[in-house]
């Protein structure tokens, strides 16, 4: 589904991603972990199409198409979804209006009719339950006045309505208390199917107790230094990230 090859990206001439390789197939859950500043969020933003980053090398194929050539909205319509680390507040735009505009844009792209007001309401009411949010969130302005936890839940709610093929969750666990974490994780698990894939970007292992990844990758200094199974996440929790770096440096040092 997603194939990242030797991806290099920089901001103002500073290289942040220095050759990322990653393959994600339908049905899989991948976790990308790494210390602060390792490039995790940059990778997530680059995949969603943020133009603040310059791609200097490499390619990204999404369902065989060149993802980097697509506008952010085109990516979304093709099924890519980014749950933001810092969901953006949009005063004056209701959650419901925003989602309806997004959903209908995506449906149009897929050759489907717009949902009418009643169909839309039925859908969103059902999806709200998935993240244990009440209906009042529909009429509230997008993320405005939401608590940190509510914002993160709202992101997963959007994901539940838009039904992406590839969902990238950027630090969705940060700012969540343990109950909210469980609700969000349950929601994501229910949305996970054989024909979609989830990439979880996180600093901590705790979310992975609830959403169990098939693969764990460690991103350090803009490159994936180590990949493994879910046990790798536990190792990282225990030992931190330094040993990965040390191990990588050792392997790079000529004998």
């Amino acid at each position: 589904m997603l194939e990242i090859r030797n991806l290099h990206a920089s901001v103002n001439g500073n290289e942040i991603l220095s050759g990322v390789d990653l393959t994600v197939r339908a049905g899989e859950i991948h976790a990308i972990m790494g210390p602060n500043g390792s490039g995790k969020s940059t990778l997530a933003q680059v995949l969603a199409g943020r133009d603040a980053y310059e791609i200097t090398e490499g390619e990204v194929l999404y369902e065989g198409k060149n993802l980097l050539e697509m506008d952010p909205e085109e990516r979304a319509r093709e099924g890519v979804f980014l749950a933001f680390q810092y969901p953006v507040e949009i005063p004056g735009v209701s959650n419901s209006y925003f989602l309806k505009s997004a959903l209908n844009a995506i449906r149009k792209h897929r050759g489907l009719e717009d949902l009418d007001a009643i169909e839309f309401l039925q859908l969103v009411k059902q999806r709200l339950k998935l993240v244990d949010m009440d209906e009042s969130f529909l009429q509230r302005p997008v993320n405005e006045g939401f608590s940190g936890g509510e914002k993160k839940r709202n992101e997963i709610f959007h994901m539940a309505v838009l039904e992406p093929k590839l969902a990238i969750l950027d630090e969705t666990d940060s700012g969540l208390d343990i109950d909210a974490l469980r609700i969000v994780a349950d929601g994501v698990n229910k949305l996970h199917r054989k024909d979609n894939a989830i990439v979880i970007v996180t600093h901590y292992q705790r979310l992975l107790n609830y959403i169990v990844p098939d693969f764990v990758h460690v991103l350090v200094d803009g490159r994936i230094m180590k990949s493994g199974s879910k046990e790798l996440a536990l190792q990282l929790e225990e030992k931190g990230y330094d040993w990965i770096k040390a191990e990588a440096e050792k392997s790079l040092t000529p004998a």
């Binding site: 199409g49 506008d71 952010p72 949009i90 925003f98 505009s101 997004a102 844009a105």
Partner: peptide
């Protein structure tokens, strides 16, 4: 820009995103 990108990343095209945000500013 963050708001525009947020809307676009959910599938809303740039023009509609600008319309929505501008109108929201006025609707206040």
């Amino acid at each position: 820009e963050n708001q525009v990108f947020y809307l676009r990343s959910r599938g809303i095209d740039e023009k509609l995103a600008a319309d929505i945000l501008t109108f929201a500013f006025a609707s206040d």
